[in-house]
Design a protein around this nucleic acid. Structure first.
Lengths: 226, 226
DNA sequence: TTAGAAGTTGACGGCGCGTCACCGATCTGT
DNA sequence: ACAGATCGGTGACGCGCCGTCAACTTCTAA
């Protein structure tokens, strides 16, 4: 064509040439992840085979193995995405904290709200799980735990927290967060604020500081299982 | 032979004849469970196949399926054994409790001591688990959780506890117990008392009541993982 | 003693697994 | 613009695990 290379947009020598190969790779990876999410949701994690995922894809079996070694690795990649999504929010929430209570409260509230909004694949896993729970601690998830411990240590250093065992405190927060989130999600009308208030009160003042309930049983204890 | 049926012990018409068939069944079941324990410990749970378990056994493949449907079911049976072993101890420990502190303290101490003594197969699973944790909530395990909630509700009813959300409190206790136990087991010199004191203080008075440490970091935080 | 119930055996068809030789599409250098 | 080099997708293949089941052995009861 005539050389109107003055300004306008030519094919796009701009910014990133991207490269056709690289583009396809990103795309295939995403195709596999999307297919896996859908298949896990359908059949549950345990019952899903690598072949199921491949079938839910226009790709050949060999191609799958260019991207992941197993369904476990696919799942880890999904978990990493989740961890990467929530970690900055948690960090930010804790950074603003000027008191112990704000630190604890922000951590739990952010976590529980995230779980309620984003529980898509959490439920996908449950589908399978009358009995088996899985928690996959990928590097990103572990990094999230480490961040929490670091933040606790920093808070101790600047006198916000008393000098307690940061490792155990981190573990306690993580344990309560996961376990209460689980119960919360099963309730008829899950409420992140109720859960966060409960957890915060526990860490601030122990059992005696917990919010009192009318019947001594919260609004829960309806269906204990199946 | 001659009929000396007077008194002494004949082959044993006593108590339970037991029945040869029934005996063999019990025995085969145990053979499979033992083989599975050993194979899980060797290769890790994830990498183990039903065939591996069968091979570690003098039995034929068909026989395995007369007892269990899958390796998952074998593992569940193992977990049930564990749950059945600890549940009575926990119940007994809590029954004696005259105060909130005794209730909480006894629960954590009993659990952590059990984990340290009995972590045989806990570690077997970990072997596999650089990244994946599994918690299998078998009926027996769930029954243990329910017992804890019931005990909390009873304690609330007789005024020992304030009228709090028993479901969430149960979840919090379980979450802290499992997560802190995990950390405890990784320490150089795991100490059930230290862990129990930490958890008890947390539930009794919150973060401010936690035991203080010299360096603001407990004796932990050595190896954070692998 | 013997009929039949209960339980074990191992070979079998089916299928998911991970691989790899092949080939078309993309990139690179001239 | 072209050709050779490289990259990456393809799908058939051999392997081993899966769960089943007809034949057989062992036990029970009459």
């Amino acid at each position: 064509m005539t050389q109107i290379e003055t300004a306008a947009p030519p094919p796009r020598p701009r910014a990133k040439p991207a490269g056709k190969r690289e583009q396809t790779k990103q795309q295939n990876r995403q195709i596999i992840l999307d297919a896996a999410r859908s298949v896990f949701a359908e059949h549950g994690y345990g019952a899903t085979t690598v072949r199921d995922i491949i079938r839910a894809t226009p790709l050949a079996s060999g191609t799958f193995y260019n991207y992941f070694q197993s369904k476990e690795e696919v799942y880890q990649a999904m978990q990493d995405e989740t961890a990467l999504a929530i970690r900055p929010r948690l960090r930010e929430a804790r950074e603003k904290a000027a008191t112990v209570e704000e630190f604890i409260s922000a951590t739990f509230r952010t976590f529980f709200e995230f779980v309620l909004r984003d529980d898509v694949d959490v439920r996908a896993i449950r589908h399978n799980a009358d009995v088996t729970r899985m928690r996959v601690d990928t590097p990103e998830v572990i990094a999230g735990f480490d961040e929490l411990r670091e933040d606790i240590e920093k808070a101790i250093a600047r006198g916000l927290f008393p000098p307690v065992d940061a490792d155990y405190l981190m573990a306690a927060i993580v344990g309560v967060a996961f376990e209460v989130a689980e119960r919360m999600a099963r309730r008829e009308a899950p409420d992140a604020n109720v859960a966060a208030d409960f957890a915060t009160a526990l860490f601030m003042g122990g059992i005696r500081a917990l919010p009192h309930t009318a019947n001594g049983n919260g609004k829960a204890a309806e269906n204990t299982g199946a």
